[in-house]
Design a protein around this nucleic acid. Structure first.
Lengths: 366, 366
DNA sequence: TTGTACGCGTTATCAC
DNA sequence: GTGATAACGCGTACAA
């Protein structure tokens, strides 16, 4: 494999231009070149210019490996998200990367597929890479991961949740409070019989918090959800459809369905339409996330909006500050917004609203 | 934990454990530890075990910076995508990362927002980071970027297109051929009057190729598209809606609308429904990408499916092979698939199909 | 203000 | 099969 010819130390044909070459070209020492690069203000202007020209001439770029070795800093942040397939995560990652890029950081991305074992592996790999900070999602992380983090002594922040857990600070929204408010809104509309479609990838604490928020609000109103009123589903449109069907079969009297995700809600709406159940006249449906589509479906979906870009930016700022030794908050709770659109309405009354609707034709009297 | 050395060194808890420490713990030389790590098979089993235990004990992880400095390899790949917001890109990146991870590589991600200047900046930054390979999207890249690539001598591959451009090999589908086939399908159904909604972020050659494919197929059938039959739009549902409205106002006789993107198509369908134009009885609409939603909308969308995951995996394999000096193909064309769903049908005949439809009620005789 | 000399952690190449 | 050693390229005390 390695044909080892003494004359060829590097593997690349490409003449790797190093700091020494620049020094020679500019007739200064390597130390001066380094100074121009790192502390330009302490170098005499004329020399500085000469060096700068030499750098440009040879189009020199410093070797980041050597730099990192010497300084112990990689100027690199890692992020592990469950999946990029979710627009809400993709948006956050994008904002994160943009903000990091502005500050001279580069972003390693990895995905765990909601699997704690994979998350641990990726974390291991990132730490070996010498990352200066790490962004996680959610608060469900195994003890090994936390131990690893502690040992590596790497600043970390978790996102899309608002409460620190296991010593990991968080930036995001209060999921439980959000669904609680949403549920209270439905209660105010007069709904009494509810169904819930909850997405349950293992280790998804956001979803759990959302479900708890629903139950809490209902409990406060003296309503208790039967197990069959809570359908658990994978996070897909198709599962939203089948969940709705199951829910309406088991509990035909339900008037409002709360989904822990827009995707599930949109699937549920599609199925409701197919079953001839008018939304929102016959059935109110709500989502969570406020994805782009939610404003465009018919009827537009009532949902909770998450400030994903702000979360990404905030995570970047947090880590940059933490690395710089600046004071940092424990956790940051960002505001969600309840977006009231047309998929919710007061519950049907037994007499007034037919189960089967023809078109959006004549709205019933109410 | 370690009582013998406890007295003297007085180190902090988070002292970086290096290969020497492991060597001492295992009573071997540092070289042997390195060998256990890199070529375990040439070390005597008993020693190997001892070293392995020492590594575990001290939970040693090698310093990748030093490793990179020595080897000249960062074991790092960079990817610059226009945006992660597009499911199709997110899916590709995810597959890319997974495959890279299996091979011990880590992925830097950056996004360009369809801006060549930003792409150049990010590329600059990635090259300074010493990445071993780079993944791009599409074939529209400025000459500076190509010069940069050549000079850095970094293996590169571009994705979602099938033809090498400017010396950059590609892996993806033939966008032009795909829309050509799709258009031919519509022609076979009997359509003669077409409208097109094309997304046009600057520098998006995929979209351009798709549009060309449409025009080519139509030209072959002796049909020429007026400028007003081609509406250009940003890549959003809302723009799809307004584009459809504009198209149908300018050309009420259109029977088929080809969109260069599912998102646009779904927006167009929503607006068609709102205008009372039945799809597909009155109007056929097609998309491109086959996003999850497309199978779930009503009616399910006829579209082109892109093997995004395969593209991501293929790009990873290509770079890994290129870095290892293995033989690599010039470009790889992956198959797309024409997915015929229910948003397309033969064109309406003047008499038989009413413009306003009530529901999906009784299908008209034909 | 500038130059010299050394160390960072790892690994390939020797000699044993 | 294993131990010692010399790079890899940069940053920075320290000397000048």
């Amino acid at each position: 494999m390695d044909k080892k010819s003494g004359a060829d130390p590097g593997h690349r044909l490409n003449t790797k231009v190093k700091i020494e070459d620049v020094a020679r070209e500019a007739a200064v020492s390597a130390a001066t070149v380094s100074r121009v690069l790192n502390h330009p203000e302490i170098v005499r202007p004329e020399l500085r210019d000469k060096v700068a020209r030499a750098i440009a001439n040879l189009s020199y770029t410093r070797d980041s490996a050597a730099r990192a070795l010497k300084s112990g800093r990689m100027r690199t942040i890692g992020a592990i998200v469950p999946t990029l397939g979710l627009g809400i995560f993709a948006e956050g990652v994008e904002a994160l990367q943009n903000r990091l890029s502005e500050s001279g950081y580069t972003l390693f991305i990895a995905n765990s597929q909601y699997d704690q074992r994979r998350e641990l592996q990726e974390m291991q790999s990132l730490i070996e890479r010498g990352i200066d900070g790490i962004v996680l999602v959610g608060g469900s992380h195994g003890p090994e991961l936390r131990a690893l983090l502690r040992q590596a002594n790497v600043p970390v922040i978790t996102t899309y949740v608002s409460k620190a857990q296991g010593g990991i600070p968080a930036i995001g929204i209060d999921n439980q409070r959000a669904t609680r408010e949403l549920t209270q809104y439905l209660l105010r509309l007069g709904h009494v019989r509810f169904g819930t479609i909850a997405n349950v990838p293992p280790s998804n604490d956001r979803s759990r918090a959302r479900l708890e928020g629903i139950q809490k609000a209902l409990a406060e109103a003296g309503i208790h959800l039967q197990p069959t009123q809570i359908v658990r589903a994978d996070h897909s449109l198709a599962q939203g459809r089948s969940a709705l069907r199951q829910l309406m079969n088991d509990h035909p009297d339900i008037t409002a369905i709360i989904c822990t995700t827009d995707t599930l809600a949109i699937g549920a709406m599609a199925e409701a339409r197919k079953m001839g159940l008018d939304v929102p006249q016959y059935l109110s449906i709500t989502g969570f996330d406020d994805v782009e589509l939610s404003a465009q479906v018919d009827p537009p979906l009532t949902t909770i909006s998450i400030p994903a870009a702000e979360i990404g930016r905030g995570a970047a700022d947090y880590l940059i500050n933490a690395i710089a030794g600046m004071p940092i908050p424990k956790s940051v709770q960002l505001p969600h917004r309840l977006i009231m659109r047309a998929s919710t309405a007061p519950p049907r009354t037994k007499s007034s609203t037919p189960r089967r609707t023809t078109t959006k034709s004549s709205p019933k009297r109410r």
